[in-house]
């Protein structure tokens, strides 16, 4: 068994009631309602190997959370097969949940009015963790996440960043081989984000923990995941390496020039170059942007030509960021 997650032709449909319009419609709704069947997840297939860190991304409503909820055994799929840690999550729920850890960024799994350590203590009993295992593992987790001083405070008194670190620790009490993180860094400041990313990397290396995370923060992905699964309208539109996603979509480089003297657009356009350069003028900041394919020494040729003809105040080479790539993909809807 080297696959942590296997998903075959997975499908989830929701029945949603649509209301008729007007007062008359409302009365008719009392008697019979119109139902529409909406597929939230539409026949998807993928596998995740043990020890992999995979980002599961998509726009709001693309079906990410629904997939996670099926993978964790909360929801029953309409059709298709799921095997996670060698089990069917929904049918063998109680046994299965022993082998996973889950963090929902939007919900707390700690008890609101009670000290954090009491929640930990209960979860320790729930997951049947021995004192030895607990001390051995959690001491380290508590130290790395720096939550020692928070343990005797009730959860409601914690800040979001403090709480999220405690949530993460709570999900790891039984040291699960598979970790689901549903938007774990939502609403957190940069420092906490960095800490959480570092921590996730560390447990992945130490215990070979498989991690599947959904996020809107592409920094998370860049820091953690080599593989990306992208979802749109319930379908997988990309499944592969982050690097090749970048390579395919970030073909163009942007070079920003600022000149000391006034330069007209036709002047830069008439520069003698043996290849095509697309010039864009940003009038507000008096910046000219050259868009060109990243091939052989085109960039150096362009720069030397510009430098030879004009006096330069500033020059920036801009690589297309993940955000832009993803935005492009979302807009076009295919990869």
């Amino acid at each position: 068994m080297s696959d942590a997650i296997q998903v075959k032709q997975l499908r989830k449909e929701f029945k949603s009631a649509s209301s008729r319009s007007g007062l008359k419609g409302a009365f008719r709704d009392l008697l019979t309602r119109n139902y529409k069947i909406v597929p939230a997840v539409n026949d998807i297939n993928f596998t995740v190997k043990k020890g992999e860190m995979v980002a599961y991304i998509g726009e709001n409503g693309a079906g990410k959370s629904t997939t996670i909820k099926m993978l964790t055994g909360i929801l029953e799929p309409t059709a298709g097969e799921i095997t996670v840690n060698g089990m069917n999550p929904h049918r063998e729920r109680e046994k299965f949940t022993q082998t996973i850890g889950v963090v929902f960024g939007q919900r707390s799994q700690l008890w609101w009015d009670i000290a954090v350590q009491e929640s930990f203590r209960l979860l320790k009993k729930v997951y049947k963790v021995t004192d030895e295992q607990y001390n051995d593992h959690m001491e380290h987790v508590i130290k790395t996440l720096d939550i020692g001083p928070l343990l005797d405070k009730p959860v409601r008194k914690l800040s979001l960043g403090q709480r999220m670190r405690c949530e993460l620790a709570a999900a790891l009490i039984h040291n699960p081989p598979l970790l689901f993180l549903d938007e774990p860094t939502i609403g957190l400041d940069v420092l906490v984000k960095l800490k959480i990313r570092e921590f996730l990397k560390e447990i992945n290396e130490k215990y070979n923990t498989t991690i599947l995370l959904t996020t809107h923060d592409l920094g998370d992905i860049e820091a953690l995941c080599e593989r990306v699964i992208m979802l749109d309208e319930g379908k997988i539109i990309y499944d592969g390496e982050l690097q090749s996603l970048k390579d395919n979509w970030a073909e163009e480089k942007q070079i920003h020039f600022q000149f000391i003297e006034q330069v007209a657009l036709h002047e830069v356009q008439s520069l003698p170059l043996p290849f095509d350069v697309n010039w864009v003028c940003d009038e507000k900041s008096q910046t000219y942007i050259a868009l060109l394919k990243e091939e052989s020494d085109h960039i150096s040729q362009l720069v030397s030509a510009v430098v030879a003809h004009f006096k330069i105040k500033d020059i920036k080479i801009h690589e297309t960021s993940i955000e832009e790539i993803v935005r492009n993909i979302y807009e076009e809807g295919t990869v």
């Binding site: 964790t72 109680e94 046994k95 949940t97 729930v126 997951y127």
Partner: peptide, 13 residues
């Protein structure tokens, strides 16, 4: 409020 999701990911009835 959807908190039942948290209950369903724990190994108990």
């Amino acid at each position: 409020d959807g908190k039942v999701a948290i209950e369903m990911i724990r190994p108990y009835n």
